[in-house]
């Protein structure tokens, strides 16, 4: 098992290196001189030259990359052009918000969707199954940003039950914070729930066909034990991997949801950085999100190995 962990972790390294090259190259591909972009039009040529030297732009590209990577590895992601705040600090400030919403959404989605998918498959081709499939495919087809707008319209504007936009940290005001969290989390959870339920249903159908399930029934075990011990556990492994994908969807889509609800998360930071051409922040966001995503997929991989002993080789 530990060899497996070490091997999977080691395999992450080259991927992350190429990720960093892509991020570096992307920013360098922006038309125009970074030094000129960072300074405004009124600055003199001398100032621009000084800036170029300061940024190391007069050196060859591979050297620039090496210096940049060295800085990144020591936690120095540069400073925001817009606010002058160190990028690492800005990312750290915003990460908590996004992490809270994402984790809650995944938790809610998984808790509801796993039993739903299991039951749908067990009751294949019945009304229950039809209802679960129908609701899943419906939620799967709703764009989260529209669902969010509609929720705001219904619950905040028409009914006035919940605050429309904004965010209060739950560590400062627990109840108030929760009220701000409900709509964003529900929006994300409903859509992701559909994905997990469909995956779980498909996996369960696969497992139900297998001989060991028939074998378990042939031993005279009650159906509840067959389902929980033999079916659910083996269907869960592949369904867990989808959590990695969902997290990708949530992180990659954080910009959209956080824009709808005006939440100061990392997605909003990314979009604002794009609007403001704040490239150090953009770079930082890309690197951080990719890094988190790769790490979570590693964890999912390892969780899979725990659930399915065959993988632990």
């Amino acid at each position: 098992m530990w060899a497996h962990v070490a091997r999977r972790t080691a395999m992450m390294v080259p991927t992350l290196l190429v990720v960093s090259i892509i991020v570096f190259a992307l920013i360098r591909a922006i038309p125009g001189d970074p030094a000129e972009i960072m300074l405004n039009d009124l600055d003199s040529d001398a100032a621009i030259t000084a800036m170029r030297t300061e940024l190391g732009l007069d050196r060859p590209l591979p050297v620039q990359y090496a210096i940049w990577l060295g800085n990144v590895l020591t936690g120095d992601l540069g400073t925001s052009i817009r606010t002058g705040q160190p990028v690492a600090e800005a990312l750290f400030d915003r990460l908590g918000v996004t992490a809270t919403i994402t984790a809650l959404a995944i938790g809610v989605a998984v808790l509801l969707a796993i039993p739903a998918g299991l039951i749908a498959a067990w009751k294949q081709d019945t009304l229950t199954d039809a209802a679960i499939i129908g609701v899943s495919i419906l939620f799967l087809s709703l764009p989260s940003f529209w669902l969010g707008l509609m929720m705001i319209w219904l619950f905040a504007i028409t009914l006035g039950w919940l605050p429309a936009i904004g965010f209060v940290s739950i560590s400062e005001d627990f109840v108030g914070g929760l009220r701000y969290l409900i709509m964003p989390v529900a929006t994300l959870a409903l859509v992701e729930m559909a994905v997990v339920a469909r995956m779980m249903r498909a996996q369960t159908l696969e497992v139900l066909r297998l001989d060991y399930v028939t074998h378990a029934r042939a031993k005279g075990l009650p159906e509840t034990i067959v389902l929980t011990r033999h079916v659910a556990r083996n269907a869960l492994g592949p369904a867990v991997t989808v959590i990695g994908l969902i997290l990708g969807g949530l992180l990659g889509g954080a910009s959209v949801t956080e824009t709808v609800f005006s939440i100061p998360g990392i997605g909003r930071l990314l979009v604002d950085a794009i609007y403001a051409r704040d490239y150090p922040v953009l770079q930082g966001c890309l690197l951080l999100i990719a890094f988190i995503y790769v790490c979570v997929n590693l964890l999912v991989d390892l969780a899979y190995a725990v659930l399915d002993p065959r993988v632990r080789l």
């Binding site: 001989d211 060991y212 028939t214 074998h215 011990r229 033999h230 556990r233 083996n234 659930l307 399915d308």
Partner: peptide, 13 residues
């Protein structure tokens, strides 16, 4: 007793 020894035992137990 089933035919396929590879699939008739639950791999995770």
């Amino acid at each position: 007793v089933f035919q396929e020894p590879m699939t008739s035992l639950n791999p995770s137990l």
